[in-house]
């Protein structure tokens, strides 16, 4: 039945509507307010309390960012490390996700829950614990060390979400393709993978964000040799005027905003939520 109209008999009263409107505005203010406030700071000379308008407008802070080689390097590091992390994560996790979604092996559930348990150990505690191992393996202050730290944060997304996506591909669609003469691999490529793609895409986006935004572990392992954008923020907040941090925030938020357009539909469409229920 295509008709699914929700015209309920009781039309909501103006009071209810007004309350809803106020709730909406409050939510919008709560969520967007701080972001806008910070974003405006990227373009102001100075802001005297308690004025509602800044003292003046400027591009000055932007030129300063790009003149600062340390900041520039952190941007470069972030843009190199995060894609590597995502690709590695896909190579390591997607076969496992397929297995967890489509095959039945001893300890399948233990596998999923184990990954979840590992994820629920407080990150900061893990990073403190991992130092010993990192010293032993000479990974402190190396790119490889940072990549591994960030990789750990992506595993939960790259296994769980695609596993649910693979599990939800109806088997009879694959069987129909086999029946039509497609090879096993071709079926996987043209049917299974294609149908699981939205889930994988969401996993990629979430993993990228997890890696790109990772600050605590990267700081502990990478600093002072390697700074990424988020770890640079720690330093910026302490040592520079708020406007520099604002500019940097906008730069840091840019890739995320780009990714919204890519995956919003699927994330809202339930791929993310599906992924977090063990089946």
């Amino acid at each position: 039945m295509a008709k699914r109209e929700k015209s309920r008999a009781k039309s909501s009263s103006p009071v209810v509507k007004a309350l809803l409107g106020i709730f909406m505005l409050a939510m919008a203010f709560f969520i967007l307010g701080p972001l806008l406030w910070l974003a405006i700071h990227a373009f102001v000379t100075n802001w005297t309390y308690p004025n509602l308008y800044p003292d003046g407008w400027t591009w000055h802070w932007w030129t300063q960012i790009f003149a600062n080689s340390a900041l520039e390097e952190s941007i470069r590091n972030s843009l190199i490390i995060s894609p590597i992390v995502v690709v590695l994560s896909m190579i390591i996790c997607l076969p496992a996700a397929y297995a967890a979604g489509r095959m039945n092996y001893v300890g399948r559930k233990t596998f999923l829950i184990g990954l979840f348990a590992a994820n629920s150990f407080p990150k900061i505690g893990l990073f403190a614990s991992i130092a010993t191992l990192y010293y032993a393996l000479n990974l402190m202050g190396t790119i490889v060390g940072v990549i591994i730290i960030q990789l750990l944060g992506t595993i939960i997304y790259m296994t769980w979400i695609p596993a649910a996506a693979f599990a939800s591909v109806p088997r009879n669609l694959e069987e129909a393709a086999r029946d039509a003469g497609a090879s096993k691999f071709r079926v996987f490529r043209t049917i299974t993978l294609r149908m699981a793609m939205p889930g994988i895409l969401v996993a990629i986006v979430m993993s990228f964000l997890a890696s790109f935004d990772e600050a605590q572990g990267t700081y502990l392992v990478g600093a002072p040799a390697i700074y990424t954008m988020p770890t640079e923020m720690y330093a910026l907040v302490e040592n520079y005027p708020i406007q520099i941090a604002a500019v940097f925030s906008l730069l840091l938020a840019f890739p995320s905003v780009l990714l919204i357009g890519l995956a919003r539909k699927h994330i809202v469409g339930g791929q993310l939520a599906e992924g977090f229920q063990i089946k």
Binding site: P34, L35, W37, L38, L209, F212, D213, A215, P230, M233, Y234, V237, A245, S249, L252, A253, S256, V257, L259, I260
Partner: peptide, 10 residues
Amino acid sequence: FVPVVIAAWA
């Protein structure tokens, strides 16, 4: 979609 560091600072 907003990095935690930015959110915290904002």
